[in-house]
């Protein structure tokens, strides 16, 4: 009898151990993934981690980081935002075109535009109850139209006379360009919102179980709208950083960014069905995606492969992270 109990406890211990290991592995997969990607490229080419290369990567990562951090909130609620790339393009074009005339006043204006774009998405999703991917797909077409009409279809340089207005962004500050520090600061703010504010908690509650959240008295519509506003804000900042970094307005700069941003968030282990994730995880995901992109460049891989790789990464990351325990869940 005693022996039987002992074996039972042992098996219990064994399964508990297994569960613990499984839990730990699934919890830290994203870091493992980032480390292995960086490690692999480092082995392929030791210059991958040279100071110059790292600086380059961080400059590449800055706009993506802003966009991905914003989009994370939308994914926390279980919705999706496909319009971020187009908003970034639009803001990039408007910044490039008007910075000479408006000066630094363009920054609050563009932030306002991003907030308005997100607010519109959020309102249509919550008030008209249209699925978010449809709303944002349509918003994408609208913002792309604004970008193309405003720019006339081609990219334009910011005139030399007003270059001094945008040069500060590329100046190094403590080894890294100012835009990297801005991206990091905004990420910190987003992290604070996620961890400490009521809105942040509500966003997670909506993602985990919308009906339960509503019954518990959470204003679900407000939480969703806030999530979309953060996403629009992040995209607008990303677009502005591109304008400052490239010193020109490019109407299709954001096209590939949307897929990259969503892939980065998924790589960080944030659930696409909502309720689980973190902006910090997104940071690691963005670094991984940037490492893949610049590592492929350094290894001399054809640029044609990029879209394919991001697509595969997106599906793979989601497949690894998705919850398979729930059997009766209807997935559409």
């Amino acid at each position: 009898m005693a022996a039987q109990t002992q074996t039972q406890t042992q098996t219990n211990m064994g399964s508990k151990m297994k569960l613990f290991v499984k839990d730990a592995v699934s919890r830290y997969t994203y870091i493992l993934c980032a480390v292995s990607v960086v490690g692999a490229f480092y082995v392929l080419n030791p210059r991958f981690l040279s100071m110059y290369s790292v600086q380059n990567m961080l400059v590449e990562a800055a706009p993506l980081l802003l966009m991905a951090a914003g989009i994370s909130f939308v994914l926390f609620t279980g919705c999706i935002d496909l319009s971020t790339g187009a908003v970034a393009s639009c803001v990039c074009v408007l910044t490039g075109t008007y910075v000479a005339r408006v000066g630094h006043g363009i920054i609050p204006l563009m932030i306002l535009l991003g907030v308005a774009a997100g607010f519109a998405n959020g309102c249509i999703v919550t008030k008209l109850k249209v699925p978010s991917f449809i709303v944002t797909l349509c918003a994408q077409s609208v913002w792309k139209c604004v970008a193309l009409v405003q720019s006339g279809g081609g990219s334009k340089n910011i005139p030399i006379a007003s270059r001094s207005l945008v040069l500060w962004a590329s100046k190094p500050f403590l080894h890294f360009p100012a835009i990297c520090w801005i991206a990091l600061a905004v990420l910190m703010i987003f992290f604070f919102i996620q961890q400490k504010s009521v809105v942040g908690k509500n966003i997670f509650a909506v993602g985990a179980n919308e009906r339960a959240a509503r019954m518990a008295g959470v204003d679900t519509a407000k939480a969703k709208i806030y999530a979309f506003v953060y996403s629009g804000l992040g995209s607008a900042l990303a677009g502005m950083i591109y304008a400052y970094k490239l010193k020109s307005s490019v109407p299709n700069i954001g096209d590939p960014l949307n897929l990259m941003a969503i892939s980065a968030v998924a790589l960080g282990g944030t659930l696409m069905s909502g309720g689980k994730g973190s902006v910090f995880r997104t940071l690691v995901g963005v670094l991984t995606v940037t490492a893949i992109s610049s590592g492929m460049n350094m290894a001399g891989v054809d640029a044609f492969w990029k879209d394919i790789v991001y697509g595969v990464v997106l599906i793979g990351a989601i497949a690894v992270n998705s919850e398979k325990g729930v059997r009766d869940l209807v997935v559409r």
Binding site: A319, K324, V331
Partner: peptide, 12 residues
Amino acid sequence: LRIASFIVTFAM
């Protein structure tokens, strides 16, 4: 793999 169709097809 029970991934929502819009995200699978977006990646595809």
